[in-house]
């Protein structure tokens, strides 16, 4: 088990326990974390799972996957350097304690 912390736009922090191998998107859905929709089920086709990886975690989370850039352009909110599609971040033991920030809008 690893820990993931979701920080909503208004600053609310939600800390959840997650399974290694699950994605940051699926973990949010399984734990009813508001602010991640994940409507395409992780197929990288909807951009409703947009998140900003906390500056301290960007290296550990790794670079964007193939095709992720294009789909991020379809996100509802501003895309920054740290923007990722949370369905493309798979949890590893190294990501224990990962902090991601949520955008205001997903749709």
């Amino acid at each position: 088990m690893v820990k993931v912390i979701y920080v909503a736009k208004d600053g609310t922090r939600t800390e959840v326990k997650a399974q290694v191998g699950d994605t940051v998107m699926q973990t949010a859905l399984d734990n009813d974390v508001a602010g991640i929709v994940g409507e395409c089920g992780g197929s990288m086709m909807c951009a409703t799972c947009h998140c900003y990886v906390d500056d301290a975690w960007t290296d550990a989370a790794g670079p964007r996957k193939d095709g992720e850039d294009d789909m991020l352009d379809c996100a509802a909110d501003e895309v920054k350097e740290t923007s990722r599609l949370s369905c493309q971040i798979q949890l590893t033991p190294e990501l224990n304690g990962l902090v991601v920030h949520l955008p205001e809008d997903q749709v």
């Binding site: 409507e39 909807c46 379809c74």
Partner: peptide, 21 residues
């Protein structure tokens, strides 16, 4: 909560979902 599947899911998730909304 309203987790409907009107736009489908998976790779064929509706390309027009954002526009429709």
């Amino acid at each position: 909560k309203n987790v409907h599947q009107a736009f489908g899911s998976g790779p064929h998730h509706c390309a027009g979902a954002h526009i429709a909304r």
